[in-house]
């Protein structure tokens, strides 16, 4: 059952990820944003399979709830009509294929070099939300507080950037 759901969610994640990047039917950025939502949701399914329930919830809340809404908001505001008329230039495709091939080869070698045939230790972390909260507020308290300051800085910076007369 676990294996079946893994293959389902993995297939959905990769398919929707591909449609974000290179949709053969539409070059519209809004379509890409919609497929990004599907990618995020199926990835939350993978997180649930890995027993990271809290992170799955955060993934849906933050990405599908906040980040995508920001993207769509900006897309509606900018009104990019000319994207559909432009052709993808050949240099971009060649450079993309070469770089992706190189990085993919590195990943493949790394995964093969760790001998995937050997059985891994059985996972033992169960229902980790409570333990996660305990670690977050004891060992990682200082980074957590710094993160809240970072969010404040980001908020101030965005308000400053969005002012009409940007100096």
């Amino acid at each position: 059952m676990h294996d079946l759901f893994f293959y389902l969610f993995a297939f959905l994640t990769l398919l929707c990820g591909f449609l974000v990047v290179a949709n053969p039917f539409s070059r519209n950025p809004v379509t890409s944003a919609m497929f990004l939502v599907l990618t995020i949701v199926s990835m939350a399914g993978l997180f649930v399979l890995l027993h990271a329930f809290f992170l799955a919830a955060v993934q849906i809340l933050v990405y599908a709830g906040a980040v995508i809404v920001l993207f769509l908001f900006v897309l509606m505001m900018l009104d990019l009509k000319d994207e559909r008329r432009r052709k993808i230039n050949r240099f971009g495709i060649i450079a993309g294929a070469i770089s992706v091939g190189a990085v993919g080869l590195i990943f493949l070698k790394a995964i093969i070099a760790t001998k995937p045939g050997t059985r891994l230790a059985a996972p033992t972390v169960e229902g980790a939300t409570k333990a996660l909260g305990q670690i977050l507020f004891t060992d990682y308290l200082l980074p957590f507080e710094i993160l809240s300051v970072l969010l404040l800085v980001a908020m101030v910076g965005v308000i400053l950037l969005s002012k009409k007369d940007l100096k």
Partner: peptide
């Protein structure tokens, strides 16, 4: 790899 392909190949900032 898909994300990298998108960054190199696509021409729209968003």
């Amino acid at each position: 790899c898909l994300g990298l392909l998108g960054v190199v190949m696509r021409r729209n900032l968003l």
